[in-house]
Design a protein around this nucleic acid. Structure first.
Lengths: 299, 299
DNA sequence: GATACCTCATCAAATTATCCGATCAAGTGG
DNA sequence: CCACTTGATCGGATAATTTGATGAGGTATC
């Protein structure tokens, strides 16, 4: 490889100080060392960077351009070393958050945007899973935080309940169930239920109740599920804020199910007791609690 | 400064090859040299990059992040050296084009966009001046190309005439001159003329004719001039394609001036004979000729 | 137009940085 | 258990860099 940060630093100094000798002084080197570095760089690039025909050496057009690009390179290098400093100041190099896709993603993105705006050096990795899959991913990846709807308690984990969220049982307005009254479980089971695929591979921990009719369609996420509902493919539970507009304009209808057409979830924010959060994790945790509504704490 | 491209290259090799010894082989070094470089990097950063507690060394989280940033750094360095190769293949490091702001800027930007899409390594600098200012800037900056409306011939310059452009004398519909018929010069001079400020500092070369009434308002560019016209502040010449819409919808009106309400310009594309264009200059020149309509050539 | 001072290049010698080859402790896998 | 791995470490070899002195040429000032 033909470039080298040290040579670029010298190049930058020569230009900013306006001469080889002055650059040498600034860099605490001798003038001949500066001369050597510049020549080495020129030789490796195979191009003259300075025009020495005049009294004072002057940048060639190529030299100007290399200098400009070199400055960017030096800045980037500066950033790399500043990163390590920040890591030693308690910022973790990365933070993984696993969330349940049923939670409102706009809210979540707003929180992440705030994090970005704080110019936190941490790389935040967001993973979206569903139901049992959230905790599975959390454990598999040894992630730092999880925002889940269901949660298998563990002594090594700390949990914090958030404001409850509600789901509602809906179908397209034209669906046979839409007009039915006092629907019983047996009736439901005669129709196709749409459900988001529980993303846990092993069904080790429970999976949420579905009605277990004969025909269940598994969709990959709530966007797909909503589309399927609107097409009248079947009925199913949806987070209430994701179908508020459709319920209002009548394209989707809340079913009159005897078992109750609403279901309340209490999302929890979970972190590890054994591996405490870094500074970014704490900031994110605080912001999530503020945004998703803090509730009574427990562990 | 604590980072160093060579160490980062070694770091990347260790990770991609999956071990110190294999990295050494790939880099044509011995394993101890690799070990040395990694230790040097760790020492300068003041952080462990590998966890050596297990049998095989494994990246720490910080190490992963430094590696990721380091890769970017290496790519950037790669780009810098590739630049010089391209310069030696005839691409010039920079290209300056001076244009007259009266020319349609959308067309011009389309040409520049094409250049960008070709991924030409040349930095293109566009300067917009007016009338005499175009050539002045061209000479002052020793620019490579100029697209001008007026042009003081020179034996060291090569010019190429383009398709003629037309200007038209207009005023707002509500302006007193708008309804007048067979307007004479003396009548014009009783009103405020709007004109774009000739951007040449010295009025050394001509400046285009204005009617020289007592009240002349100088605007900085045609956007401002058009706004002033639409406000009814005065009358003035405008490039025809910049007021086509306003003439059609009647908000601006072409004046019935006895001296002729239309004026034809022949833009020229000028380059230097003494300093031939690089590859990017030739490409740009070709595209400008194609876009702005080629005419009979002369020099 | 002499003088002092500046520009950057160049050279041999001194100093470092990097690499090599060998060896070691620890861990792996048959 | 033995052959083989992985990465660390050490003294000596080698290459890269810096030094200090010198030189050729341009500038500034009187």
């Amino acid at each position: 490889m033909s470039v080298d940060l040290e040579s670029l630093r010298v190049l930058a100094a020569v230009v900013s100080e306006g001469g080889f000798a002055k650059a040498a002084e600034k860099l605490n080197k001798t003038q001949s060392a500066v001369s050597y570095q510049i020549q080495k760089l020129e030789q490796r690039l195979g191009t003259a960077l300075f025009d020495r025909s005049a009294y004072r050496a002057e940048l060639t057009p190529v030299g100007e351009r290399i200098l400009a690009e070199g400055q960017r390179l030096l800045n980037q290098a500066q950033y790399v070393s500043s990163l390590v400093d920040q890591f030693s100041e308690g910022w973790e190099p990365r933070l993984e958050l696993v969330v349940d896709g049923m939670l409102p993603s706009a809210e979540l993105l707003a929180v992440l945007k705030e994090m970005v705006e704080l110019k936190i050096p941490t790389h935040i990795q967001l993973r979206v899973e569903y139901l049992g899959g959230v905790q599975q991913r959390f454990e598999q990846d040894r992630a730092d935080l999880m925002l889940a709807l269901e949660y298998r308690p563990d002594t090594r984990l700390s949990s914090q309940a958030l404001a409850p969220a509600e789901t509602v049982l809906v179908a397209q307005a034209g669906h046979p169930l839409a007009r039915a009254q006092g629907i019983e479980l047996a009736t439901l089971q005669q129709h196709v239920e749409l459900t988001v695929h529980d993303s846990s591979y092993s069904k080790a921990y429970g999976g949420r109740q579905t009605f277990g009719g004969e025909r269940v369609f598994y969709l990959s996420d709530f966007r797909a599920k909503k589309e399927a509902l609107e097409m009248g493919l079947g009925y199913g539970w949806m987070p209430i804020e994701q179908v508020a507009r459709e319920l209002a304009d009548g394209s989707l209808v809340e079913l009159d199910y005897q078992g109750g057409s609403r279901h309340r979830y209490t999302p929890v924010l979970v972190s590890r007791l054994d591996l405490p959060l870094g500074r970014a994790g704490q900031v994110l945790s605080d912001k999530l609690l503020a945004r998703f509504g803090e509730q009574s704490a427990d562990s």
